[in-house]
Write a protein that binds this DNA or RNA. Structure first.
Lengths: 149, 149
DNA sequence: CGTTGACCTCAACCTTACTTGAGGCCCTAC
DNA sequence: GTAGGGCCTCAAGTAAGGTTGAGGTCAACG
């Protein structure tokens, strides 16, 4: 309903970016503070976002959705430039990093699904066999040791 | 290295539960405060955990690992009794609920993986086609609408 | 008999991820 | 010319998920 023209169209104001990415304006400013995204300024000191930033913001939202901490994103984005559209190659490399993370997470869940299925089968009556109960090796090897399991 | 005997062996002290589940003592007390787990008390007012509580604690840890908020757990645990070992049937029903949650989460990730793969293929040059950029329908249908995409 | 260890409570603090509010600037419309 | 919309900054507040610390009890060890 605003009568604002879409500006340069390749240089979007924060409200537009917010609407398109579904990310709150305040969150965008916050991500910028963290160095996860960047923006330029127009004559009035208002933020302007390059189009390639939408991709980056989308990835931040995705990370949030699956519970990856924002700090980890800095690392994931390490080789993707903030100041210009990433090259095809840069983007590919980053994407592969992302896929790896997603895959790890998916496998964790798959493993848990399998374990839970096992538990349904066994009724989890057998404590020593339950992988859910013994994640990693926390049970073994300490001074007091597992007792009479 | 303590010389404490393992107590009644079916009624574990908090330190033992912490060691076996890999959950901090403080976290166990916190979960109890939230009503996610429960314990009895011995003569000295010390918490004692029934064995079946280990399962429950394990599930809380799992939820944490995959980013499910603790509040959602109350719901997931709604039909599993706190005061006695759940019956095989009760446990099965709860487990199935858990599986559903895990599955949902896994599918979200799978979808994102697929989308990201698409992006790698296309180099994400095509903004309008990128599912990552347009999660849900946030782009369409508002007053200002997408412009010249 | 003192001290060490495991546990207790309650209150304060911490991190992450934001949101909200106060106070202000600029531009356009009525 | 003033009302409103969109943006700005900076500081404070919020919610989740715990951790840390102070101060205390009880029981066993040496």
């Amino acid at each position: 309903m605003t009568t604002h023209p879409p500006a340069a169209d390749d240089w979007l104001p924060i409200g537009e970016v917010s609407a398109r990415t579904g990310t709150a304006v305040s969150a965008l400013r916050f991500y910028e503070e963290l160095g996860l995204i960047a923006s330029g300024r127009d004559g009035r000191g208002h933020r302007r976002y390059a189009r390639h930033m939408l991709r980056r913001i989308a990835l931040v939202s995705v990370a949030k959705r699956i519970g990856i901490p924002l700090q980890d994103l800095r690392e994931a984005f390490a080789d993707v430039p903030l100041d210009r559209p990433p090259s095809h190659q840069e983007w590919q490399r980053a994407s592969r990093g992302w896929k790896r993370r997603l895959e790890e997470r998916r496998r964790t869940i798959e493993r848990l699904e399998a374990e839970l299925t096992g538990c349904i089968g066994c009724g989890c009556l057998s404590m020593k066999a339950c992988a859910l109960l013994n994640p990693g090796d926390s049970l073994a090897e300490d001074g007091s040791g597992p007792r009479r399991l």
